[in-house]
């Protein structure tokens, strides 16, 4: 089967009573891609994932996974998805290996195939040494890996992970991230997070959600280019301070500027262009013209975090809606 898209979401809307959790969300994910759903708490990430996983129905709109409609062919869709819900719920009274075998059998694998696959995912997720331990006694990092192993055990086409690294320490985050990256190509991965560096490092593409709508989507580089607004230029120039001041003031291309002294008689100048132009060739030309010395010239990069904060408009940090809907 050669469906071009692994996930196709069209106008998806979900209401809980009068509260709208997601509103007209549309996006596509190609096979083999790792896509991150980004957004503050309550933005509708979990709701979107639950609809895709067949746990909740949408109020309007359609969602297709591997060409199957989530509402009409729920079982077919569920066979093709490995889903790890938020907080990674597990049965604490079961042992790791026993739990994974149970899950594999539940997902329709034969007894023999289940045993083989469990061996593979135990190895893949680094769980071999805890395979006989009770899940309830495992550390959070190991539990998270058990959840991942469960999502992988039936070799699904699509893996949906809701906040896979939440509550982990940096080492654990790294190992989980490496694991997810290793899935690209063979599996399609949709993961949600509100930690930006994580999305930037793991995902090919990102969708930013806010208040149930898709605000922006693209690769991290695209988002940066498209959304960073005017392109500030940083230049370090050795020149008399007064001369620089009057020059920048007289320059019609420079809308605003800031200057600070640096070592060895250099000055760090931050220049905001008028309009969308790239000031760098201009600055180089001016420096040559004036006979100044230039030791650095760069376009200031906006981090994804700047973009995210700008887009979601929550610089104060107080997220509007802390609790994600059931």
């Amino acid at each position: 089967m050669s469906e071009p898209w692994m996930i196709e979401v069209q106008d998806l809307t979900k209401r809980y009573g009068s509260r709208v959790a997601i509103h007209g969300v549309s996006f596509q994910v190609a096979r083999g891609e790792i896509v991150g759903l980004l957004g503050p708490n309550g933005a509708g990430k979990s709701t979107t994932m639950r609809i895709l996983a067949g746990f909740l129905p949408a109020t309007f709109g359609t969602a297709r996974v591997a060409g199957y409609d989530v509402a009409l062919d729920s079982l077919e869709v569920r066979r093709r998805i490995g889903y790890m819900p938020e907080n990674n719920p597990l049965y604490p009274e079961m042992r790791v290996q026993e739990y994974l075998r149970f899950r594999a059998r539940l997902k329709g694998l034969s007894r023999r195939r289940a045993r083989e696959r469990v061996e593979v995912v135990l190895e893949q997720c680094g769980l071999t040494e805890v395979r006989r331990r009770l899940i309830g006694q495992l550390s959070k990092g190991y539990r998270q890996r058990v959840g991942l192993a469960d999502a992988l055990v039936h070799e699904p086409d699509l893996i949906v992970l809701d906040e896979p690294t939440i509550g982990l320490d940096p080492h654990q985050i790294r190992s989980v991230r490496r694991l997810i990256k290793g899935l690209a190509g063979r599996h399609t991965v949709l993961l949600s997070t509100h930690i930006l560096p994580e999305a930037e490092m793991t995902c090919h593409r990102m969708l930013i959600l806010l208040e149930g709508r898709v605000l922006a989507s693209g690769t991290p580089a695209e988002l940066e280019r498209r959304l960073s607004g005017s392109r500030q230029v940083l230049a370090e120039i050795a020149a008399p301070e007064e001369g620089l001041r009057s020059f920048w003031n007289a320059c019609p291309e420079v809308a605003a500027w800031e200057m600070a002294p640096a070592d060895d008689g250099f000055h760090r100048c931050l220049l905001m262009p008028r309009g969308d132009q790239d000031l760098r060739p201009q600055v180089y030309a001016w420096v040559r013209e004036q006979g100044w010395t230039l030791r650095e010239l760069s376009c200031r990069r906006y981090s994804l975090e700047d973009i995210y904060v700008r887009l979601t408009g929550q610089e104060g940090g107080g997220a509007s809606d802390e609790d994600e809907e059931d």
Binding site: P89, R103, G108
Partner: peptide
């Protein structure tokens, strides 16, 4: 506990 979600998103009727 939340395992209801993993259970009901498995391919089981």
């Amino acid at each position: 506990v939340g395992t209801y979600e993993t259970l009901m998103t498995s391919p089981v009727r």
